[in-house]
Design a protein around this nucleic acid. Structure first.
Lengths: 233, 233
DNA sequence: ACCTGAACACCGTTCAAGT
DNA sequence: ACCTGAACACCGTTCAAGT
């Protein structure tokens, strides 16, 4: 009866348990909640124990990034990448929109992926899937190469827009003072604003506010552009 | 002869001096060098003095962001925004590439701009300039609206690409272990890599590695796409 | 009005030590 | 092999106090 009651709850740590817990912490509290100390507490362990399974925080984030891309791989596993020149565009479209659905579950993930400096195995496999689509679709290597660059983070299902209110905050994208000056000095914005005033405040936005419609618009402009270049080349 | 020798060097602090110094610090040492304490030291002042001119670090970054956009405004001031449907595309292209030249001078700036949650007055003026071009070019408000979203950060001269080696680091975009596994499992990458192996290691890359050619490619795909939609609509 | 000193709460991390 | 305690260096920031 010495250490009985303590031992029961402690499943031993492992790299995977650490990474999964990290994702949970970020999902619940955002990225700023993901600290070594906080993560340790959630795992009911001292902060220093984490360093046995993960070299440091950067390595932790590398692992988390890879886990997220693995989730994308699962989400897109059923997509048939053996396409034709007639169907490649549509297939790539659904591929990327599936990736996006994962990002919508982890709104902090774009930032983590963006700050990784080295490509992980999962990402490599995902991009390989995109390459298969390009190739079977009759897109030249050269064009596929430029296209990959052009898509950038959009290939993984997210994109950056400027000046997005922090998630949860009530801030508008433009502060009120700035807005006041605008009316007098910048007339075009008044017209633009009545247009831009989507009535879609309630729709789901990803990390840095790109809603589904705008994401698809941009994606389609790119894919259509690539298709035209394919036909021209 | 009491405090004579000390006083001479101390120009009094001001919000502008703080912001300018912050930009210098970031230019020289990168964003992680920009700490309140470090910034204070550069200004030959105690860290707490900064708080008199700037509410907190977030406000400091807000100010820095606005200064950067002001630099873009200067850089693009001479561009005539009264265009025609025939010339709007080319004018917007040079506008955005000018903005990019500012980003190339401040490689940390994309991150700062991206993390701002509220639009500042300078950015508003810059976007107003873009709107003028759209309007004079015969682009509908609706299309201009979508286009602005689609351009996203690209409108300000930068874009995100995935997995870029940290500036200064010798890292490849793919780690060696990952690379090894690749050859066997992911054959398409071998072909792709011989294509992707630009011989342009020496060219200038922005923040998260988008070199000039790729940036222009993506920009042109978008602008061409907008122009087509303008003609169709 | 402008700047400072001391202190606080919070990071990531090292290192020697426990089991 | 796995976890911990104490300590270090470094953040941003508050608050009362100096000139």
């Amino acid at each position: 009866m010495v250490t009985e009651p303590k031992r029961e709850t402690r499943t031993p740590l492992s790299r995977d348990r650490v990474l999964s817990a990290a994702i949970e912490v970020a999902d619940e509290g955002g990225l700023e909640a993901l600290t070594m100390r906080g993560l340790a507490e959630r795992l009911d362990v001292e902060a220093m124990s984490l360093y046995y399974h993960v070299a440091n925080k950067e390595a932790l984030l590398d692992g988390v990034a890879e886990m997220i891309v693995r989730e994308i791989l699962q989400e897109t596993a059923d997509i048939d990448t053996s396409v034709t020149p007639e169907t490649w565009k549509e297939t790539m479209r659904t591929m990327i929109l599936r990736a996006r659905s994962v990002m919508l579950r982890h709104k902090w993930a774009p930032w983590v992926l963006e700050t990784r400096s080295t490509m992980n195995a999962a990402a490599l496999r995902y991009f390989h899937g995109l390459l298969e689509i390009f190739q079977a679709g009759g897109v030249s290597w050269d064009l596929a190469h430029h296209a990959m660059h052009a898509l950038g983070s959009r290939a993984l299902g997210f994109s950056q827009e400027m000046f997005n209110p922090a998630p949860g905050s009530e801030d508008e994208q433009t502060s009120d003072e700035v807005f006041a000056q605008m009316a007098e000095e910048l007339p075009l914005f008044m017209e633009f604003m009545s247009e831009i005033a989507h009535t879609d405040d309630a729709d789901e936005t990803l990390g840095w506010c790109d809603d589904q419609t705008e994401f698809e618009f941009a994606l389609d402009v790119m894919l259509d552009g690539f298709e035209r270049l394919r036909l021209d080349g």
